[in-house]
Amino acid sequence: MLRYTLKRLISLVISLIIASFVIFFVIEIAPGDPASFMLGINAQPETLAALKEELGLNIPKHERYLSWVAGMLSGDFGMSYTYRTPINQMIADRMWVSLPLAVYALLISTLLAFPVGIYAATNRGKGGDITIMGATQLGIAVPNFWFAMIMVLIFAINLRWFSAGGFPGWEKGFFLCLKSLTLPALSLALPQAAILSRVMRSSLLDVLSEDYIRTARAKGLNKRQSLWRHALRNAMIPVLTIIGLQFAFLMAGSIIIEQVFFLPGLGRLVFQAISQRDLIVVESVVMILVFSVIIVNFIVDLSYAAVDPRLRNRV
């Protein structure tokens, strides 16, 4: 287990290094240098020179890359060009909206998909299964941001159960914030839940046709017992993969959903930064997003090993 973890950890670090490399150099190949791009074509030469100095564009690229990485490691992402404030503070504030939103959505999606998938698999071919399969087929086709707009129309504008958007801030109370994140989380979670419950169902059906389920029945376990004691854990392996992938989608999706609900998250920050040509902020936010996806994949890898004893002894 230790060896397995160690190997995953090494590959995590390598992934992070390459990802940071890619992000840094994509931003670097911006037409012209970042400074003139950020200032636009009408910039004064003095301002340009000052910004170049400030961004450290006069030192060689590889040194700049190293100091960027070193800065991030110590939690220093640099200064925003537009706001003249430390980026780490800006990101930290926004992160406390985006991350809870993604986790909240992941929870809803998982909690919904498991029972639905299990129910459909155990009632395969019957009315309930067919209805669920139809509903999930539709759920997969719905764009989450459109679903969000419709939910706003129904629950905020017509029924007035929720506010149409905005975020009160965590200092105003946990439940108030949770409430304001509920519609966004639901609109992110339901389409994902549709996918996840289909995966859950087909994975369970695969496992239920395995020889060891027949063995379990021959022992005298009934269908329900063999499902809970033998099938479910085996069916989790493909489901975990999808949950890992979904987190990446949810992080990205939450950026879009934030636009619908006017939430002050990473999405807002990054779109503002793009329109204000604040490349350092874009670079940092993208790095944070990619970082979180890689971390989640690492966690998924570890949970494979927790589920499957065969992996624990492998390198």
């Binding site: 395995e210 020889d211 060891y212 027949r214 063995t215 379990a216 021959a218 022992k219 005298g220 376990l221 033998h230 854990r233 085996n234 589920v307 499957d308 004893p309 065969r310």
Partner: peptide, 18 residues
């Protein structure tokens, strides 16, 4: 399992791997 026991052909897949 109590009055009738059964042994299968494929030992490689007859046991729960987990």
């Amino acid at each position: 399992g109590s009055q009738i026991g059964m042994v299968f052909q494929e030992p490689m897949t007859a046991l729960n791997p987990l």
